[in-house]
């Protein structure tokens, strides 16, 4: 075995830590501070007696049993719904997810977040790639909404596909009706219709199938991948490309965030997709470091320069949070 070890050049290291998206971190942070804000009053001075615990435990156990029973027997409940929000990301193969009364087929190289909308309905955030949805009619049920960048698809009960590449999105309806909201404009699509965020509504020649859902890589319009916190590799050849400069700055974040910030800002002074990514990354890093004024300035600058950039939606979310935190 030791000979084999010595002759194998392609040793596998520890599994890479999967990066969490900014939105996931935002959810965690919001939930933690909401919990702290709603923390219980100071601890009681006197410890309750064992008998008091028994008296208290009886109704609590009964209530817990009733809730558990209700969760099990209620007609529209499912374990997946209770586990939300969940992120689903696919590799080379599609995967099928049962989520409440919907069946979601996630295309290869796609990622989406299953969550709750403010009106207690279902909100699916399509990060990238595509997915097909088969949803029961919504009459009497909570709303079912798919968000792909700035495009929102509201479902009335249907079978349809949504795909996303950067901030561009397209929708195809196989059965039923959906309402698409993009930049304030509403469009109702019926079976056989297709829609894309370029503004053209066209009759679809064919409905979407699992294989037909675009498996678009997560790239901006100009072809640069959107910001990802994954560990980049820094090649040792010169001169460094914009991507290599960006990767080098990302690699510095953990050890020397100030230097990383400087590098991002320097790269952002240029033009092109990596300047856009660097400017967003600088804003995100400043926000992470609680430098809220700087974060606001950088994120505003990003939205001004790249209003349709691949990270525009995340930049707006962060900017809102920076503004909330600053007040």
């Amino acid at each position: 075995m030791s000979d084999l070890r010595r002759t194998r050049p392609d040793r596998l290291g520890p599994p890479p830590v999967e990066a969490l998206s900014d939105l996931s971190w935002a959810r965690v942070e919001r939930a933690v501070f909401a919990e702290l804000d709603g923390a219980a009053a100071p601890a009681p001075v006197r410890q309750p007696s064992r008998r008091a615990w028994v008296y208290a435990a009886v109704p609590l156990v009964a209530a817990a049993a009733a809730v558990t029973l209700w969760m099990v027997v209620r007609p529209d409940g499912s374990p997946n719904e209770r586990a939300i929000p969940s992120r689903v990301a696919t590799g080379d193969s599609p995967t099928e997810v049962n989520f409440g009364d919907a069946v979601i087929t996630v295309a290869p190289q796609s990622a989406l977040v299953l969550g709750r909308s403010p009106e207690d309905g279902v909100l699916i955030l399509l990060d990238r790639g595509g997915a097909n949805f088969s949803v029961a009619p919504r009459a009497g049920r909570p709303p079912f909404v798919v968000q792909a960048g700035e495009v929102q698809v509201r479902v009335t009960g249907t079978e349809f596909g949504v795909s996303r590449s950067g901030d561009a999105a397209s929708v195809h309806v196989l059965r039923g009706t959906v309402e698409v909201v993009s930049r304030g404009n509403r469009t109702v699509l019926h079976a056989g219709d297709s829609w894309s965020s370029s503004g053209e509504r066209e009759a679809a020649a064919r409905g979407p199938s699992t294989a037909g859902v675009a498996a678009a890589p997560f790239v901006s319009d100009a072809g640069a991948p959107a910001v990802d916190a994954g560990a980049p590799r820094v090649p040792d050849r010169a001169p460094p490309t914009s991507k290599e400069q960006f990767d080098a700055a990302t690699a510095l974040e953990a050890k020397d965030p100030e230097a990383a910030l400087d590098r991002y800002r320097s790269l952002a002074r240029g033009s092109g997709p990596w300047a856009a990514n660097a400017l967003y990354a600088a804003g995100r890093l400043a926000f992470d470091r609680d430098e809220l004024r700087l974060a606001r300035r950088l994120l505003n600058d990003y939205l001004h320069r790249f209003p349709r950039g691949a990270n525009a939606s995340d930049a707006r979310t962060l900017l809102n949070r920076a503004e909330e935190a600053g007040h």
């Binding site: 999967e18 689903v88 990301a89 696919t90 590799g91 995967t95 991948p225 990802d228």
Partner: peptide, 9 residues
Amino acid sequence: PLELVPEVA
């Protein structure tokens, strides 16, 4: 039931 996988460019 879900396959959660790391992303690869």
